[in-house]
Computed example of a mutant assay.
Amino acid sequence: MTPAPQLAARLVPAFAAEQKSAPVTDWAARIGWLVALALFVALVYWLMREGWKWRGHLQGDLPALETAPHDPGPARLTMSGRYHGSTTAGQWLDRIVAHGLGARSRAELTLTDAGLDVSRPGAADFFVPAGALREARLDKGIAGKVLTEGGLLVVTWAHGDRLIDSGFRSDHAAEHGDWVDAINSMIKTDSTEGAER
């Protein structure tokens, strides 16, 4: 009978002889797949960009945005937070991109007797005159952003012949209720004064 060490010594060379080296990686195929993937991603990005530009072109009838007056009066409320975009009123997925309204950004909101001033670093500022304000409410979403119920301040305003919903989120969400009350009371006051005249 063959001792175990001798048997192992005979099997190791036989086993080593049967082993084959791993196949060499096919670099040409891998590089080809990576290039194809990069081209596909570039194509999708280009199509998205063209769609954004086309949407802006379709909304070209929208008038230019107003800027804040030099002396809008004392601030009723101020808020720091984010601007999440604007849509056609009542159609929370119909995003408006003309005049930079589609660009998300940080925002500083100031409500005065003259209207709502939206200051956006890195994007176009705009001003909504008090007479153009239609409604303020708490909502859960606007195109591209969905939050918990009441997590978004949505201001409806008239611009040209369109009603627009603009979505904002404060750094302190507890402020949203004060904004809804202030804007809606301002709208009621303006409409009451207009009816008396």
Score class of each variant (00 low, 15 high):
Glu193Phe: 03
Gly100His: 03
Leu101Ala: 01
Thr189Val: 10
Ala9Phe: 12
Val155Arg: 01
Asn184Gln: 09
Ser170Gly: 08
Ala143Asn: 08
Ala107Asn: 02
Arg106His: 08
Arg197Thr: 13
Val41Ala: 15
Gly60Asn: 11
Gly100Ala: 03
His172Trp: 04
Val35Ala: 13
Leu133Met: 13
Pro74Met: 09
Leu138Ser: 04
Leu7Thr: 04
Leu65Ser: 07
Gly51Arg: 11
His176Met: 06
Gly144Asp: 03
Val128Ile: 15
Gly151Ser: 12
Asp125Asn: 13
Ala158Leu: 14
Ser166Ile: 02
Phe15Val: 12
Ala75Ile: 09
Ala28Val: 14
Thr88Ala: 12
Leu65Ala: 06
Pro129Ser: 06
Leu65Gly: 10
Lys145Trp: 10
Ala75Leu: 03
Thr156Gly: 01
Gly56His: 04
Ala29Val: 11
Leu58Gln: 15
Asp161Ala: 10
Pro5Arg: 05
Arg82Glu: 13
Asp71Glu: 13
Gly151Ile: 07
Trp54Val: 07
Ala195Lys: 12
Trp27Val: 07
Ser105Pro: 10
Asn184Thr: 11
Leu43Gly: 15
Val180Asn: 04
His70Glu: 15
Val24Ala: 12
Gly102Ile: 01
Ala38Leu: 09
Ala8Pro: 05
Arg197Leu: 15
Gly85Asp: 01
Gln59His: 11
Ala22Val: 12
Gly51Lys: 06
Phe127Lys: 01
Trp157Asp: 00
Asp71Cys: 08
Glu193Val: 14
Thr78Asp: 08
Leu65Ile: 04
Ala9Trp: 12
Ala14Gln: 15
Ala22Pro: 03
Ala136Trp: 00
Gly150Gln: 06
His172Ala: 10
Leu62Ile: 14
Phe15Trp: 10
Asp178Phe: 05
Leu133Arg: 01
Gly122Val: 07
Gly85Ala: 05
His176Trp: 07
Gln19Met: 14
Arg82Val: 10
Trp46Tyr: 09
Ser119His: 12
Gly85Tyr: 00
Gly56Ile: 06
Ala68Pro: 07
Thr110Trp: 03
Trp33Pro: 00
Phe15Pro: 00
Ala42Phe: 03
Ala29Leu: 14
Val155Gln: 00
Trp52Tyr: 15
Ala130Ile: 05
Asp178Gln: 13
Ala174Lys: 08
Ile96Pro: 03
Leu62Pro: 01
Ala42Gly: 10
Met186Asp: 10
Ser170Pro: 00
Glu193Leu: 15
Gln91Gly: 05
